[in-house]
Design a binder for these strands. Structure first.
Length: 583
RNA sequence: GGACCUGUAGCUCAGUUGGUUAGAGUACCUGCCUGUCACGCAGGGUGUCGCGAGUUCGAGUCUCGUCAGGUCCGCCA
């Protein structure tokens, strides 16, 4: 070892002894005659007192990697600082520069606001910052908590292949050309879905893995093309058994990391109830502002648009912004209409509550005999603002679900340090794809329909068919989703049929899987949770990139190595590939 | 594929109605300073105003295009 201690190991026991330390020069304060260097390593900082003779020999700049020998001293009483090692100071006897440093492109300091572009390009410097080291440390702790909890429940940690058969359903696959089989390709796993089911067929009845997943789709603030999931699958279980396991390891995370328990079991809402009350399948339950329906109130409005919306089978719904009439300017309220345009809405209707009447916006078109009913329905009083949308179910729900979050942020009513978990259950199995002219799976093709909905296969009422499908939501973030799976060949074929897959296609693409279901495949189910989303949400961050050591930019290019990159002709030839000009 | 926002010194940012030599803080360099701790003091500008056209007597500023980053829609079972 080049060092005798790291900076997290210094205690009164080390006082007045000679120690050797390694780290980086965080700051250099040369006073002329007396010189201080702040040494930083992964664990902490420590002030070095460097004699003038040494200072004159070695010139030390920011981020120089140095090795120092010296005596650990107590700092003079009046100079002691409250932070870690703030009472200590190393009286340096020798100093060696292990490696000098260019002037860094930004100062390694939590207080600096740095362009993210630059942070990603120099991620190794960004990671020297405390806030980033804390994330990496937290993530390690979190995964340890999960692993130890699942171990205690006899889960087996099993790896699955990183190169597998391409699956045209759902997200685009990342494809890997095969050198040995010209013209054929592997795909990187979007998830280990089929493998974890096969593990259940094999009788290894409790599986988990920290699985890397790859999807060739555009990135977002909460979505990366490469991500890690806590992936698990269990045999002979029902939904509640899966929920209990997840609630168990989440509680373990809270106990280990925050020293507190969480309220379990979590709240449960069916998908339909959730959409009715929040307009979105991942509601943030840290604040109220639940939706209410205004069909009966606006039906008789002189503004005929409302009646037309109802007749067309649409939805009129809204929510109350407590104190919104007082706090929000006309200009801000108008901006809400711009905000919901992204969700295809034509605009937001609004009315301020003044006394027991309405003012501004759509007020004049609220039927007089319905005003009292609306106040009651909206639970509104003087100074509140009512906002609502009238459109198709999809547009109304999308708009309100997102506007609710948007306004909550603006009104600053989201409490900090609060974690609200929710299971959303009974998602629909299928949705009709207008473009393709057929049904597609809303989640994936391997989820079991609700037993009481299996009859809809016969009646053809496929929109009504809900599955044993569930999402875990925390603070408005979808942490993960799972389902009880189909475990018989017959049922699996039925679902493949519905989405328009011919028997030949089924054999070609999933023959190996259908065959496995024939050998006594047990009932099973599971779930997968995104690790970065979990870290991000638990630490209250709003960008997933900050929760990942080496993320890619939202363009999906990596700032660090500038990948992807072109290949030379020999490599292409070896893989039997030709690059076509894209028009 | 689409909408919006951003791009000026190493970094964070200001820059008026188009008008002289483009600024501030910080970093950096030089010198001074024996208890600083985001040390201080004095001095120093280190710039392809993202890039390319255009309008104009004149463009950091206006127009068009383009590139990069961000947020969102589409997409993402």
């Amino acid at each position: 070892m080049l060092r005798s201690h790291h900076l997290g190991q210094l205690t009164d026991n080390e006082l007045n002894t000679e120690i050797t330390l390694c780290g980086w020069a965080d700051r250099v304060r040369a006073k002329g005659g007396v010189n201080f260097i702040v040494l930083r390593d992964r664990y902490a900082k420590l002030q070095l007192n460097v004699p003038q003779e040494i200072m004159e020999v070695e010139s030390i700049g920011r981020e120089y990697c140095i090795k120092i020998q010296g005596i650990l001293n107590q700092r003079p009483e009046k100079d002691q600082k409250p932070e870690q090692n703030g009472a200590y100071e190393l009286q340096v006897t020798s100093l060696e520069v292990l490696n000098k440093s260019d002037v860094p492109p930004f100062i390694v300091d939590d207080r600096e606001e740095i362009n993210e572009d630059l942070r990603l390009k120099y991620r190794y410097l960004d990671l020297r910052r405390d806030c980033m080291k804390d994330v990496v440390t937290f993530r390690t702790k979190l995964l340890n908590s999960v692993r130890s909890h699942l171990n205690s429940l006899d889960f087996l940690e099993v790896e699955t292949p990183m190169l597998m058969k391409a699956m045209p359903e759902g997200a685009r696959d990342f494809l890997v050309p095969s050198r040995n089989f010209p013209g054929e390709f592997y795909a990187l796993p979007q998830s280990p879905q089929l493998y974890k089911q096969l593990i259940q067929v094999s009788g290894l009845d409790r599986y988990f893995q920290f699985a890397r997943c790859f999807r060739d789709e555009d990135a977002r603030g909460d979505r990366q093309m490469v991500h890690t999931q806590i992936d698990l699958e269990m045999s002979f279980v029902e939904e509640e058994d899966v929920f209990a396991v997840v609630e168990g390891f989440l509680n373990k995370i809270f106990v280990d990391a925050f020293d507190k328990n969480i309220d379990a079991p979590f709240m449960r809402l069916t998908y339909l109830e959730c959409m009715k009350r929040f307009g979105i399948d991942k509601p943030d339950l840290r604040f109220d502002m639940e939706l209410f329906d205004l069909d009966s109130i606006m039906e008789s409005s002189p503004y005929s648009y409302f009646k037309e919306t109802i007749d067309a089978g649409g939805r009129i719904a809204g929510f109350t912004v407590k104190g919104g009439a007082k706090e929000l300017s006309r200009k801000e309220i108008d901006k809400f209409s711009d905000y919901v345009k992204a969700y295809r809405s034509k605009g937001v209707f609004w009315a301020k509550v003044v006394g027991d009447d309405f003012n501004g916006g759509i007020s004049k078109n609220i039927p007089a005999d319905q005003k009292a009913n609306l106040l009651k329905l909206a639970d509104a009083e003087d100074g509140d603002l009512i906002v609502f949308i009238a459109d198709t179910h999809k547009v109304t729900n999308d708009s309100l679900g997102n506007l609710r979050n948007h306004i909550a942020k603006r009104m600053d009513i989201i409490p900090k340090g609060v974690y609200k978990f929710l299971w959303v259950t009974d998602f629909p199995m299928f949705e009709y794809d207008e473009d393709a002219g057929c049904y597609i799976a809303m989640h994936h093709l391997f989820s079991m329909p609700k037993e009481e909905h299996i009859k809809y296969f016969e009646t053809g009422e496929l929109e009504k068919m809900h599955g044993c499908l569930y999402d875990l939501v925390m603070n408005g973030v979808e942490l993960g989703s799972g389902s009880i799976r189909i475990h018989t060949e017959e049922m699996q074929q039925k679902v493949f049929d519905i989405v328009g897959m011919s028997p030949e296609d089924q054999q070609e693409r999933f023959g190996f899987f259908l065959e496995a279901l024939k050998f006594g495949a047990p009932p099973h189910g599971g779930i997968a949770l995104g690790v970065a989303r979990l870290v991000m949400t638990l630490l209250g961050m709003d960008n997933m990139r900050d929760a990942i050591t080496f993320p890619n930019a939202s363009s999906t290019r990596y700032a660090l190595d500038n990948s992807p990159s072109k290949l030379d002709q020999d490599t292409l030839d070896d893989l039997s590939l030709e690059v076509a000009d894209k028009k």
